[in-house]
Design a protein around this nucleic acid. Sequence first.
DNA 1: TAAATGCGTGCAAACGTATGCAAGGAGTCT
DNA 2: AGACTCCTTGCATACGTTTGCACGCATTTA
Lengths: 339, 339
Amino acid sequence: MSERKVTSLDVARRAGVSQSAVSRVFSGASASPKTISKVRKAAEHLGYRPNPLARAMITGKSKIIGLVVAYLDNQFYPLALERLSNSLQDHGYHVLVFMAPNDQEAVEKVVHDLMDYQVAGIITASVGMTNDLTQRCANAGIPVVMFNRGQDGGGISSVTSANVAGGGRIADFLVAGGHKRIAHIAGWEGSSTGRDRARGFVDGLAAHDMEPMAVIDGYFDREIAAQATRDIMSGPRPADAIFVGNDHMAFAVMDTLRGEMGLSVPDDVSVVGYDDVPLAAWAAYDLTTLRQPLNRMVEATVDTLLGQITDPERPSQKIEIEGPLILRASAKIPKGYTK
Amino acid sequence: MSERKVTSLDVARRAGVSQSAVSRVFSGASASPKTISKVRKAAEHLGYRPNPLARAMITGKSKIIGLVVAYLDNQFYPLALERLSNSLQDHGYHVLVFMAPNDQEAVEKVVHDLMDYQVAGIITASVGMTNDLTQRCANAGIPVVMFNRGQDGGGISSVTSANVAGGGRIADFLVAGGHKRIAHIAGWEGSSTGRDRARGFVDGLAAHDMEPMAVIDGYFDREIAAQATRDIMSGPRPADAIFVGNDHMAFAVMDTLRGEMGLSVPDDVSVVGYDDVPLAAWAAYDLTTLRQPLNRMVEATVDTLLGQITDPERPSQKIEIEGPLILRASAKIPKGYTK
DNA sequence: TAAATGCGTGCAAACGTATGCAAGGAGTCT
DNA sequence: AGACTCCTTGCATACGTTTGCACGCATTTA
């Protein structure tokens, strides 16, 4: 029972001004230097802090950002969550977490919850049912930014890495490595990320007059990726290189190749991933992968979202950020490529 | 601009009752069946949903749980976050994320933010500055549950696994495996979790008239654990077994042993971890480890917290949950132990 | 039958802030 | 010097809900 609630009215009385004056000082509206100083002093003395809930009720917008996220077992997303939360905290916002729903009914509930809390904005990180969810929130006038997912249609902002270009760079890299039978275990085809990487990759091979030996949808799932690996490698003419749609699956692929099939990476087969999660750098995998520049992606996401909150008229943006190919030991390094 | 805000007053008018009647129906207070049905029908027709912010303002308690979390790179915590969020969502609560601060000043800010949002309760997951933070929130009358951390002092609830017992079980296991020079790279000594596991382990060895060859604080940090590994293994008489304070460090230890020192696990040295994160089961590590039963820990945490929210008089609880030792390939399996 | 009991309901006052409006004061321009 | 503009300030209201209070009505008890 230490501190009792102290309100703007208490501050006003002590400072000898009206409650509205206090409100104006703390909401950044105009006020004379003298008033500001009186109010600040009184507020500090009393330990006053504006009540964000009351504020939200009046303005209709809370300082809360809804973060809708699907999986947390792919290391990329916890890190994104961490960075996003930190960055938003620096800007005076906080992150309310929503685990992304699987069925339609749950989507309904999440959308409602988001609106109930009058979130100022929404970030969706790799959500399956993006279309429905984001569209409805955007229609309700809530700024939405899709993180690590794009969308062709409506005017919804998104921040991704340059997935098509990245896929192409990996194609170049594997061709330069002298690989002849190159397979692709793709990210989920239902996601722009999966599609774009696959497209860039296939087009990249085509530029060298080559075709992928196989393209299999791995659904961003370890088990499915493992099965795809078995399918690809068990025939009479197995692949000599595999581009995997993200690191998370790539680890499963390497586990399957080495642990289960007794193959050597990269001697028997090169493996390349996408993301460059920290785990990719660990000795057990040492995975060659295309880095998604997490910090810059987070920065762009926060900038875009806050911009759209500040100015609702601002048009939506689709931001793509280039990342470098990180050369490690899981894939043959062609001449001319250097660590 | 689809749906306009619909308030309890709108519902009241349509149902032909007073606004308070509507409130009572939705807040579970007493009302006649007839009123309830009228109100529900009107509410459904209008698509009414009570405004949680307004509710919070009046009652002084929001349906928000503050989750203070330090690191998200140890896979254990993202999963805990996921499960906690899901479980709390099922109970009508939502999770507001706070990244745990490093310096004193930031703690101050987090504490204030938590109180500003009038969170109904707080869960701290492996936070360093727990004492300060939790004590102050608890003093303010906000229920706090520490997840995966205990505290000897004050009356703050905590949920952990049976760390002392677990450390002991691992001692028994390694002794049974015939190991003679057993080292421990401990969890951070500043955490109850780290201390308890170390104590259980050392006491367990003592019961066999043995002493650890070395006990080094790894601070739950990969790099520090790696350096400890070098220290332990580079002398004339290296360890033949290492118990590592959590899986996250154990992976670094294995990376160092195999990748850097060219040693074989478990032929040259057995490694045992603690947590059983999903990664521990992957072929690249196949880590023998003591499982922390995440689901049950989450369940206990939510139960305890909600219980304390419902009944503020309820005394604090310190819950310990036993987990099994998961036998895999990173440590010699003694006779009598079976997968 | 009169009094006592109980539940269901409406009224009105909160909760803590933002903001339109009008009034006051200081400063500028003609 | 007077009129005009601009900035500051206080008053009062609104945001959407919960809840204490009092009243009405139906039911029970003596």
